[in-house]
Computed example of a mutant assay.
Amino acid sequence: MAATKNRATAAAQALIAAGADVNAKDDLEDSAYLYAGAEGLDDILEMTLRNGADLRSTNRYGGTALIPASEHGYVATVRMLIEAGVDVNHINNPRWTALHEAIVYGDGSERYQRVVAALLDAGADPSIRDGSGRTALYNAQRSGQIAIVSILRGHA
């Protein structure tokens, strides 16, 4: 975790090669795998995926690595996690999916459009309602994300 949080890729690589558990969690419930995914540290994320990352592992918010990666608009990271097999419809403790977070925390820019499209292409269900009963489409409309609205409607 220390190597990952310090973005020390070479140190993380050495520790993983020496047998460090990529799923071991710190007191914040982060693991090297979860943190690398959440922060878009794709070099370290790739190493964790090759070395036993638990794709069902969740952070302190009950979210998989895909949810914060989507929140931050990390397109390559989102694609890597989807390709690895992370559940695109996992619902975290606040009752949001990766799709919800990409819209609620995103700004509708091109990178968020690409994240939303990747999630939808991977089977994200836009009809899932958040804890307030809102769909992804409703949240996109409410925040004026016209391009995201179009993408969502195009996948209906």
Rank of each mutant, 00 (worst) to 15 (best):
H100K: 06
T97I: 03
M1G: 10
N6P: 00
S109N: 07
V116F: 05
L15H: 09
A14C: 12
G52M: 15
A147T: 13
L15Y: 08
G40R: 07
S150T: 10
N93K: 11
V78R: 02
A8K: 00
T64K: 03
A136H: 00
H90V: 12
I91D: 04
R7K: 15
A136Y: 02
Y61S: 14
G63N: 01
E29H: 15
V22C: 14
G62A: 10
A118M: 00
A84W: 00
A18R: 11
H155G: 03
D26M: 07
N59G: 09
A102P: 10
E29N: 15
E110K: 13
I82G: 08
T77I: 07
L120N: 02
A17P: 03
A32D: 10
M47N: 04
L15D: 04
G154M: 15
I128C: 01
L137K: 13
G108F: 04
H100I: 01
D87M: 02
P126R: 12
I103M: 10
A10T: 07
H90W: 05
N59W: 09
T135V: 12
H155V: 02
G62Y: 06
V22Q: 12
A8N: 07
S143V: 02
A98N: 01
L66N: 03
G73I: 09
L15C: 01
R129E: 14
M80G: 02
E71H: 10
K25D: 11
V104N: 12
T135E: 06
A18I: 05
A11D: 12
A140C: 00
H100M: 00
G37C: 11
I16W: 07
E101D: 10
T58Y: 03
D130Q: 02
H90P: 08
I151G: 06
A118T: 02
I146S: 09
